[in-house]
Design a protein around this nucleic acid. Structure first.
Lengths: 204, 204, 204, 204
DNA sequence: GATGAATGAGTTTTCATTCAT
DNA sequence: CATGAATGAAAACTCATTCAT
């Protein structure tokens, strides 16, 4: 009897092996032949695990984003202040570590697909991601309000924050010399000036 | 005397004739054959005026955006209040007239190209556009401050406004049910609550 | 004592399980994967019992035709008059019952293979079928002659009858609105006008 | 200015150049690469003149059959007696000259396509051919009746004759040792015994 | 014996670009 | 100058068959 393969796992394995192709070539230039070669399998084998080329790319992106979400959840746990936590959502556009740039560029390639194809699967997936971060930021803001850090109306800014972050991302993707960090800090500081509850510090 | 053809003008003519192809097919599906046919010239002739296919697309987009800029300048002239003028910058993402959607979708196609190719020309062109709107909004805000409509610090929000608009555009492009108008209004109203100088209205 | 599998029987079992695939997909579109799945066995196992794909198709067709032959022999037993028996040979092209159409379309698929491949096995098999019906019609005509129904020369028409039936089949297969029944009846009635012995009916 | 090509003519030229591929390989094994190579042109050029592979094959067959029809019309002109003319319709299945075998085998390949694909174009074309021969034989029989060679009822046998010929063709295509000529002669002679008007020869 | 994972040769089709006229 | 015929590289996808387990 032949070895039984966990198809779902192998899908992930193949996609994982190819996850760098996105940065090396750009999504549009990935070919099935490349994928097969990179994963060290035959072209036909690719089609044992994926419906078509789109499916491959989708899985690769999926992996990228899933990984990012997990890291996000992991690292936000250690943060204490609301402001820190909010900043954490902007890490994606600010952090220039190789690690994060990989994710960022992965997202860039992903966007280029969503914008040119109107693939339903991609759109749905995009929604899922948006909801993820929307839920997260809502939670952070809520906790901030409950802790007396933020004014109650702050809850209305959840969406604006994420929209601003999307705009920042887009600018960073399309402009050469964009000082994301500075612009980002300015904005958040300004905003917090508006929604933060200034606590009287240690007065008698 | 041979007929001297203004190459630059003919480029524009060809691109102009093809400007609807972007909406009809999407940028990725435009072929040189299509361009030639649409412009009513031969395939070979296309290459007399354009380096390659990228160059054609670049010119088509150029025309779109140039046209949009002109319309923008034209229509902002009639606006009086600072708030109206600022809103005008968001017309691009809010106005759902067929006319504007054409521009909006053209920009979407354009983005998908900029994000996947890292074409230098495109990037430079993108910068030019950004500078255009940045100059425009700066002017509006400045005038607003000088007119006593806005607080002096408002000038710091120019970039944020444009970034927010970019984020809005991106969301509108990638999400199915996104209420651009509402989100936009909320944001601007909130912001103006912060930077507008409330004038005592003509009381005795 | 190991389980001894009758290979020949298993061949039949597999082919039998797949006999509907011919109608559902058409011979050309049958894949080995389909066969394996339909028969509820592994792809590798198919090759334990069949040399190659051709061999599978051959067996499936074999089953179809064998079945048809058996039914033919079964049903002709009950017929009394020579004319009825001769008509029975044309049932194949006239009968539009679902059951018979299955056989008819099976034969059509089979022909498309015989005509495109020049597979020796197929040709031989085809001969076997022809001989079967030739023997059968010869027997019918002979009995008719012996019974005094037909003129002795009728024996020369055996082949013509079968050829005509092949022609009818081909027309039915390739034409949209072909009235097989009418054409068939005309021909046989005309022919019987020629070869039947008119019996004086019950005169004193 | 580039040379202007008569597209329709070039289509024919390419198909003509490839007309032997049908006999050399069989229709199913013709590849576009083969066609291009045989016609001495590039693969892409093939697609300048044909929609797809089916279209190529269709044209090749078209040429074969058109040519055959023309030859048929040409050669039947010289025949005098009705019997000769009727025999002429069976030339297709009887004549074993290389020339005619080419046409015959072309038709065989064509049939294999019609039987496996249910391509509408092919079916329509098939009808056209049937009508052609039906019209021709009707004309011959009519003239035979008018000339007093055949009994008026002969007109009813037009279809039967063609059906018989189709049956003969099918047998010749699928059987190894089939004496088409003899069987054909027998049938026609038998039939003419039935429908011919015996003329009293040379009486005072 | 049984299996199904792995394979890659083979096929159709597209299209930017060239170049002879 | 203008042209459109010619091209071939490149890409996605299929499937009969093999073979390690």
């Amino acid at each position: 009897m032949p070895k039984i393969v966990d198809k779902e796992q192998k899908r992930k394995d193949i996609a994982l092996a190819c996850s760098d192709l996105i940065h090396d070539l750009g999504i549009k230039k990935i070919t099935v032949a490349q994928v097969a070669k990179t994963a060290g399998i035959g072209k036909g084998t690719v089609y044992e695990y994926f419906e078509n080329k789109e499916d491959i790319i989708f899985e690769i992106i999926n992996i990228h984003i899933e990984e990012y979400h997990n890291k996000f959840l992991e690292s936000i746990k250690d943060l204490k202040s609301t402001r820190e936590k909010v900043f954490h959502f902007f890490n994606f556009v600010i952090d220039n570590s190789e690690e994060n740039l990989k994710h960022f560029n992965g997202y860039k390639e992903y966007l280029s697909i969503v914008l040119s194809d109107n693939d339903e699967k991609m759109i749905n997936f995009n929604d899922t991601c948006n909801i993820f971060f929307h839920d997260q930021i809502k939670k952070v803001i809520k906790e901030g309000i409950e802790a007396g850090d933020l004014i109650p109306k702050s809850i209305d800014f959840c969406e604006s924050l994420l929209i601003f972050e999307k705009g920042l991302a887009l600018k960073k993707m399309t402009e050469v010399d964009f000082n994301t960090k500075e612009v980002c800090h300015n904005f958040i500081n300004n905003l917090f000036g508006l929604i933060e509850i200034k606590k009287e510090k240690k007065n008698v």
